[in-house]
Design a protein around this nucleic acid. Structure first.
Lengths: 206, 206
DNA sequence: CCAAAATTTAAACAATCGTTTAATTTTTTA
DNA sequence: TAAAAAATTAAACGATTGTTTAAATTTTGG
């Protein structure tokens, strides 16, 4: 008795679009239904509730959010190459999905998702061996004595924030979206040089 | 016919608290009224509407948000000293008001405030002469050839993001608020060294 | 102290919220 | 092709939304 799956997928796509731009509280189920071109009852027919639908969208978003890490860290590269590739990939990805960082952080900030981060998000990252590679490089004196947590904070700050601050930055400097995007590209290069230079002491690039 | 002003102030304080934690869409005027210990009608009596009240709170928040810049940039210090002081002051301030960056960026992101940034926020910063000081240092070859916009993005990324990512970071690393705060302190030191080292080429600290 | 003004309240407004019900249409199955 | 199942719809549910009205209370000024 299975039928065309596209309805369920269409709802998910619409929900993703609406939730991402307006947030959980900022939209109604009727907004999503209108985006689908359909009925409110249909949403609950497939997903039981607005909350359940949101959790589904959020999980998918979180998965996308961390995907670059898994991909890059799973490769067979040096630590420096991995970091450079990670920054490249993250920027590439967020250029395509600029609203993702704000959506994730905002949802977590307002407890729109109750559960702590599911281990199936973190385990794949840990299993890449990146943490061991990092600690080894530290032990060998190849890189600076900085904790993984602080390294992560440094990376995420410089990779996520620019996409979250689009409106603020554009208004602050009085620039338009085009110039902002050009600045983003420059920022990527700066961050790469900045972080590599900082981390790998013996390898000054400047 | 003027009366005790504290009612109006109490409403503003309550609105600030509620808007900051739940966002404009995430709260009702009754939430704020309950926080005041009073009536919904009283809010509209003083502020006409939820939107007007929000805009007032947002303006105040934006003012606080940029205050450190004005203070530090108005001082009589070298560029390097100003940057170091700015980072110190921003961290100090956001330690006390950690929800501010998320509130500002989220509100702008979802167009909760229509108008572009009022010039009375930007002019005081421009009038400090910081931009001229920056360009002069660049012309003298004291600092790297980086635009003010990219410098700003670098600073804001590393100063704002950590406070916005509290929940994500805690869940990502499985740490509690206490450890997170310790990481914040370390991050501040790292960012200072990182940025100064990067900007002032001839002044390697490591 | 008393009328006037300002403040505060309870109650109600229509609109919208998420959700459910029940009927209808479409698809599947045998 | 006809009965069964699944999908879709319109309509309504009670609760909550932001706002307003009108009455009650408190404060002010003469």
């Amino acid at each position: 008795m299975k039928r065309d799956l596209s309805t369920e997928e269409k709802i998910k796509a619409a929900a993703k679009k609406v939730f991402m731009t307006k947030g959980f509280d900022g939209c109604s189920v009727r907004d999503i239904a209108k985006e689908v071109g359909s009925n409110v009852a249909l949403l609950n027919y497939y997903f039981r509730s607005k909350e359940k639908l949101f959790e589904l969208i959020f999980e998918g978003a979180m998965s996308d959010f961390l995907q670059s890490m898994i991909e890059v860290f799973s490769s067979n590269l040096t630590l420096q190459e991995k970091l450079e590739q990670l920054i490249d990939k993250e920027f590439e990805f967020f250029m395509e999905h600029p609203e993702l960082p704000m959506f994730i952080l905002q949802s977590l900030h307002q407890n729109k998702t109750d559960a702590p981060m599911p281990s199936h998000f973190l385990e794949p990252i840990a299993k890449t061996g990146i943490f061991e590679q990092f600690e080894l490089a530290k032990a060998k004196g190849e890189i600076r004595d900085i904790s993984i947590r602080n390294m992560t904070m440094l990376l995420m700050s410089n990779v996520h924030y620019p996409f979250m601050s689009k409106k603020l930055t554009e208004q602050f400097h009085g620039i338009d979206a085009e110039i902002f995007e050009a600045d983003l590209i420059k920022h990527k290069a700066i961050v790469k040089e900045l972080i590599i230079n900082y981390l790998f002491i013996s390898n000054p690039k400047a």
